Amino acid sequence: MKIKKMLLAVFLPLIVSNSANAALALDATRYIYNGNTSFISAIANNESDELYGGQVWIDNITENDTRPTFVTTPSFFKINGKGRQVFRIMKMSDHMPKDKESIYWLNLQEIPPANKGNGLSMAIRTRVKLIYRPKAIVKGRSGAEQYMTIQHLPGQQWLVNSTPYIFAISDVFDNENKSLIFNDMEKDRLTMFMPGDKVNITGQIVKSVSALNDYGSLEKYVLKNVVN
Rank of each mutant, 00 (worst) to 15 (best):
T37M: 10
K82L: 10
A25I: 02
M90S: 15
K98Q: 15
I89A: 01
A28R: 15
V71C: 01
F76G: 01
S75P: 02
T66P: 02
D99M: 04
G81S: 02
E110C: 00
Y31S: 01
N80E: 13
D59N: 15
D94G: 09
T29S: 15
V10H: 13
Y132C: 08
R88Y: 05
A25R: 13
I131G: 04
S142Y: 12
T69C: 11
E47V: 10
V138G: 04
S121Q: 11
I15Q: 14
G54V: 02
P113S: 03
R125D: 13
Q55D: 07
A22R: 05
F70K: 07
N36W: 00
V128S: 01
G119Q: 12
I131T: 15
T149Q: 11
Y52A: 00
G119K: 10
E63C: 00
K91F: 02
N118L: 14
Q109K: 15
G140T: 12
A136H: 04
E110N: 08
M96D: 07
M92R: 13
K129G: 11
I40N: 06
L108E: 04
A20V: 09
I89D: 09
V128F: 00
T37S: 10
G117M: 03
K82V: 06
I89M: 04
I124Y: 03
V128C: 03
E110K: 01
A114Q: 13
A23F: 12
I137F: 10
N21H: 12
A28Q: 14
P112T: 03
E145V: 09
V56M: 07
I103H: 07
A123E: 13
S38K: 10
A144H: 08
N34A: 12
E63T: 12
I124E: 06
H152E: 10
D49I: 03
E63W: 11
S93E: 09
F77P: 01
N115R: 11
S121H: 06
D49P: 08
I137P: 01
K91Y: 00
V71R: 07
G143V: 07
S75A: 14
D59R: 04
V56D: 04
I111R: 13
D94S: 13
K116N: 03
S142E: 14
R67E: 12
P112N: 08
N45T: 09
F11P: 00
F11I: 13
P113F: 05
K91Q: 09
K135P: 05
Q109V: 11
M96G: 05
P68F: 11
P112W: 05
